[in-house]
Design a protein around this nucleic acid. Sequence first.
DNA 1: GTCTTAAGATAGTAATCAATTACTATCTTT
DNA 2: AAAGATAGTAATTGATTACTATCTTAAGAC
Lengths: 202, 202
Amino acid sequence: MDTHSKHLPADERRAVTVESVVALAGTQNPSEITTAAIAKHMNLTQGALFRHFPNKEAIWQAVMEWVADRLLARIDRSVKGIESPLAAMEAMFMSHIAFVAEHPGVPRMMFGELQRAEPTPAKIVVQALIKRYGERLSRLLDSGKENGELSPSLDNEAAATLFIGTIQGLIMQSLLAGDVERIRRDAPKVFAIYRRGIESAQ
Amino acid sequence: MDTHSKHLPADERRAVTVESVVALAGTQNPSEITTAAIAKHMNLTQGALFRHFPNKEAIWQAVMEWVADRLLARIDRSVKGIESPLAAMEAMFMSHIAFVAEHPGVPRMMFGELQRAEPTPAKIVVQALIKRYGERLSRLLDSGKENGELSPSLDNEAAATLFIGTIQGLIMQSLLAGDVERIRRDAPKVFAIYRRGIESAQ
DNA sequence: GTCTTAAGATAGTAATCAATTACTATCTTT
DNA sequence: AAAGATAGTAATTGATTACTATCTTAAGAC
C-alpha cells in the first residue's frame, strides 16, 4: 500500500486520502478530523491535500462515495447465488457486519453526515446509499413473503428499519464497550431475534 | 419560561443553558454548537456563559446529566404498575420514543458523545445512563422468562442490544426523512416485529 | 541526459473558536 | 439607603481551522 515514492499520481493520492480518513474515523470523532490530521496520517503536508481536492467538503464526498461503492458491492456479492430470501438477508447482514468491523469509522461517519442540517454533498451520497440499501432489502422481503419464509403480514418498511437498527444497536454496544470485535461476536445472536420476528410461523 | 428579567439566579441560568443546548441539538449537528450560538439562543452574551460553567465541557456534562435524569425518570414512570413484563417493555419503548420525538437532539448528542475517543465527563454520563438502562431491561427480560411471556432460550444481552437498536433504527429513518414525527408513527410497527422476536411461542 | 510539469514543501492568510478581562447593571441584605 | 454579592456586557486573547500563494523537487517523455 505504502510505496516509498514521495510523488504519487493524483488518483492514487486521492485514494490514499480517502483510506486515511476512513482509518482516522475508526479512532476519533469524524467531525474532529482536521485536514492537518489527514495529511499527517499519510505523511504529507496539509496544504498539499488541496492539490487534489478543491476543499474539505470534497474530501468527505469522496469518502462517502468510497463507502457506498464498497458496501453495496460487498452485500451484492454476499447475496449472489443464494436462492432463499431469508438466507440472503442473513448473508447481507453478516457481510455488512464484517464491513463495519473492518472499518469501524464507517457508521460514525454515516451517522455524522446524516445529522447535518444542510444537504452537503457527502450527506446526499449517504442518503442515496441508504435508499439503495433499502430497495435491496425490500426486494428480498417481497420474495420472502412469496415463497412463504416470511410472515405475509410483515410491514416491509418496518422490517427494513429494524434491519438497519439491528446493526445500529450492535454499533452502539461496540462504542460503549470500546471494542469493535464485539460486533462480530454478538451479531449472530442479535440477528437470530430479528429473524424470529420476521419469519412465518412454523 | 422566559421571564423578562435579564438577571437570573445561577441555577436558573444553568437550567436555561441546558435547555438551549437540547433545543439547538434538535436542528443542528451537536458538535457544531458553539458557545456563541448557545448564548444567542438564550439572549445572552457569549462570555456570560462562563460565569456559570467553568468551560464548554462542563456545559455538555450538565446537558447529558439532564438527559439521563429525565429519560430514566420517564421510563420508570411509564413502567410503574404494569405487571406484565412484556407490556412493561412496550411501555418503556413507547415512552422512550415519545421522549426522543420531543427532544430530537437527544439521540444525536448521545451518539456524538459515545464516539469521542477520550472519556469526557459527558461521555461518562452517557455510558452510565446506558448501563442503568440496560439493567432495567435485563430485569424485565428475566421476569418475562419466569412468567412465560418470553422465550426461555432468549439471550438477554442480545435482546437488550436489539431493543436499543430498534430505537436507533427509527432515529436513523427520521434523520433520513428529516421528519421527527415519523418516529412516533412507525414505532408501533417496528416494536411489533421485535416483540415477535422475543416472545415465547404461542 | 534534459525539459516539462505534476506533485509537494513552506509559509503564509482570514475566519472562527473557547476563554478571559475590565467594567457595569441589578439584585439582596442589613 | 448603603454596601456587598451576583450576573451581564463588550472587547480582546491565543489557539486552531480551512484554504492559498510561492518556491522547490521529482518523475516521465523525448
